[in-house]
Design a protein around this nucleic acid. Structure first.
Length: 423
RNA sequence: GUGGCUAUAGCUCAGUUGGUUAGAGUGCCAGGUUGUGGCCCUGGAGGUCGAGGGUUCAAAUCCCUCUAGCCACCCCA
């Protein structure tokens, strides 16, 4: 019988990696909290319509990457492919924006996309993100970027570049789309296969093409089709970023895949990531989304970052915390009759520290070897002729003690070990 | 979703033009040592050769299908 494997494109979080995972989540929550963001969480699945309407048809997410099922009640449900639409639904659905504005929330949630797995691309991955809902001020655009930037800096990751662009408002994009079509349609026959498809489906994506770079160079720029208010909005955002001393690249070819974006769009790139999966995260402004979902028009802006990709970089750069010992103290028994004593001692010691007992019938040298490998600090040997033996696994020195004094002896040894710079 | 590469012990990998019972290193378990982490010595367990089918007297090896991983594309986190 073949052993059951995890579903395609999924990955287990194993104890060795769990501390880095926690470290990253805590860092994001801590930065967000300092900026006044509160924790939010939404269901792992939603009605399919939320994404169909919110994210928009014509996007890859909706057209080919949704994990959609029909439940037993005949409803179409979809595993959440991204966080913004659900969070906006939750915030506006609960009328949080009527208490104070804007609503600032942060989240850490798993996302699902039915994609072909690849390094840096999973069917289930996690994102940490923030949203500011109910305010159109460009200061908020800069703020969500600053939160992300500071989070990355707090982790200690370097080599990240901020790619920034403005998509203008809906009218700007409509006008730009027209001039793109006017430019590209006569060139149709000289375009690559993908671009011909883009021309029909999503003309803005034409700018992404690497093969037809010469066409892209001469293509009209979105920046030339911006209304005065759109230009002002963008100028304000870049001004705030300058104040915050956050460097960025104005990338006029940056076009985000989701329909609901307006004005600010950004991505964080990292060169060391494998292959084409070099985006750590991104975000932007989505002033049209609330309406799409059937709520009153409400502006919003946010960011989201990929946890697995951040961890890949953090591990590469050697800054991710490694797993520590499961327990500080390992009790090793000698002889069958010591097991009961070991359990009693363990119970008492757990008031002060973490303890595991090895009451197996294996040889003492194997028990000590495993204790040493687990990186525990102390071993307590029970059942020896001379009494209780407390062994320091780092210094390899040991002392004989009694059940009355063992708690203090353990505390003293742990304190000494903690102060030892070698550990 | 498209194309390419790959899959042999827990891990890293050998395995010849198809030929007996599929190997090595490392790890694991045990003994040497009723009781001290390393080293050393001895022994042992562990594989339906990714899964299923086909060709053949004979398949880890050749063919087909499927699954999974990786790479490129698409796109993104």
């Amino acid at each position: 019988m073949t052993p059951i494997a995890p579903p395609r494109g999924t990955k287990d979080l194993l104890p060795d990696e769990a501390p880095a995972w926690e470290w990253l989540h805590r860092a994001h929550a801590a930065v967000a909290a300092r900026f006044g963001y509160q924790l939010i969480d939404t269901p792992i699945f939603e009605s399919t319509e939320l994404f169909a309407r919110g994210v928009g048809s014509g996007t890859d997410i909706v057209d080919k990457e949704m994990y959609t099922f029909t439940d037993r009640g005949g409803r179409s449900v979809t595993l959440r492919p991204e966080g913004t639409a659900p969070v906006v639904r939750a915030v506006l659905g609960a009328h949080l924006d009527q208490r104070w504005r804007p609503v600032r929330v942060h989240y850490a949630m798993p996302m699902f996309r039915y994609d072909r797995p690849q390094a840096g691309r999973l069917r289930q991955h996690a994102q940490v993100g923030v949203e500011v809902i109910g305010e159109r001020d460009p200061g908020c655009d800069a703020e969500v970027i600053e939160v992300a930037w500071r989070f990355i800096a707090d982790l200690g990751i370097d080599g990240v570049s901020l790619q920034l662009n403005t998509l203008g408002d809906k009218d700007d994009r409509l006008g730009y789309r027209q001039s793109l079509l006017a430019y590209y349609t006569p060139l149709r026959d000289s375009l690559c296969e993908d671009c011909r498809r883009r021309l029909d489906v999503n003309p803005l994506r034409l700018l992404d093409c690497k093969k037809d770079a010469h066409h892209v160079e001469n293509a009209p720029l979105l920046g030339d089709h911006l209304s005065a208010p759109s230009r002002e909005h963008f100028a304000a955002v870049t001004g705030h970023l300058g104040d915050a001393e956050i460097p960025f690249t104005h990338n006029q070819r940056l076009v985000r895949g989701l329909d609901y974006y307006a004005h600010t769009a950004f991505e964080f790139w990292h060169t060391s990531l494998a292959g084409a999966q070099n985006a750590l995260g991104g975000g932007g402004r989505y002033d049209g989304l609330a309406e799409q979902l059937g709520f009153a028009p409400t502006p919003g802006v946010g960011h989201a970052l990929g946890v697995e990709r951040l961890l890949t970089v953090a591990v590469d750069q050697g800054i991710a915390p490694r797993a520590g010992p499961p327990a500080q103290v390992v009790i090793c028994t000698v002889g069958e009759e010591s097991a009961a004593t070991a359990r009693t001692l363990a119970r008492q010691l757990r008031d002060r520290t973490s303890v595991v007992s090895d009451v197996s019938d294996r040889r003492l040298d194997r028990k000590l070897r495993d204790a040493g490998r687990s990186d525990a600090t102390l071993a307590l040997l029970v059942g020896m002729d001379e009494g209780l033996v407390l062994r320091n696994l780092r210094t390899r020195q040991q002392q004989v003690t009694t059940s009355d004094r063992v708690l203090d002896a353990v505390s003293a040894e742990l304190l000494a070990a903690a102060q030892d710079p070698r550990t």
